[in-house]
Amino acid sequence: MKFARRAAYRTAMFVVSIFSVVAIWELYKIIGPQDGGKFFGVSVLPRANNTAMPHISTMLSRYSRPEVRGSDKKIWVVVLSGAWFSLRLSLVGFFLGTTIGVGLAILMARFKIVQRGLLPYLVMSQTVPLIALAPLVVSWGGKLEIGSFVWPRWLSASILGTFLAFFPIAVGTLRGLSSAPAAAVELMESYAASWKQTLFKLRFPAAVPFMVPAFKLGASGAVVGVVVAEISTGLKGGIGRLIIEYAREATGDPAKVFTAVFGAAALGLIMAGFVAISDVFFMRNRPKESSI
């Protein structure tokens, strides 16, 4: 009961905060300079005119109008199918990333030498912009042939999602696998349990509270990777391409790009939602304090 009330309160606060953002946007449109403001010769204040900053209502109503003049395809259909396309790529990337990340974590937990050799690179890789590889990886599309399998362009985007997803997942899972208390490990030893038995009966269940936040990072990494791949190479079909295309039309149809931007936001939130649901599922029987 208490829990439900708190959830309702949080939702309400979230809605209020969204409305505050809307209010600030509209307020700036009233008081802000129409053609941007300069301080010491540098333009820091954005233009408040309707071309640069359309009204929120214009953005929302844009959804019900056709994508291009004369077409009978409403823009919300286009944005939705673009987001759906990117979502599928992100899911592929996420699942590949999970497989590789968890696999590496198991390997590192099993063999100290692998952990010693690999972990510094994993930590370092969090700090270097791997995303710079996006155009490179996407350029494999259509050119690379492995036997009779021709590498499709969309797979490159997913692979990029995998790149960004698997590092946090590997590190988080490793931390979780090593979090099993020494006494519990000793207990399993006293049962003469095999390493595999200890892994599945003790280490993995103990790792869940660490894996959930790692998966959250991984999920948003997968989305970022896919969208960046789409944007940097203009990969057709996804939400990233729509954003780039619509941004070019911004002088004539300023609200259009926002429909796609909101689509990208929805995409990220849906991926996060999947992880949040699995969090609730896996942690349902755990003591409430330990849900980190």
Binding site: P46, T51, Y246, V257, V261, A264, A272
Partner: peptide, 28 residues
């Protein structure tokens, strides 16, 4: 705090950099 924190956290899940497409129009 209660107003902004959930907003900031949900921004974490969003590929927020796509806003550049919008910002490019708001400046030259």
């Amino acid at each position: 705090n209660q107003l902004i924190t959930p907003l900031a956290i949900s921004l974490n899940a969003i590929p927020i950099f796509v806003l550049v497409a919008v910002l490019n129009n708001m400046y030259s």
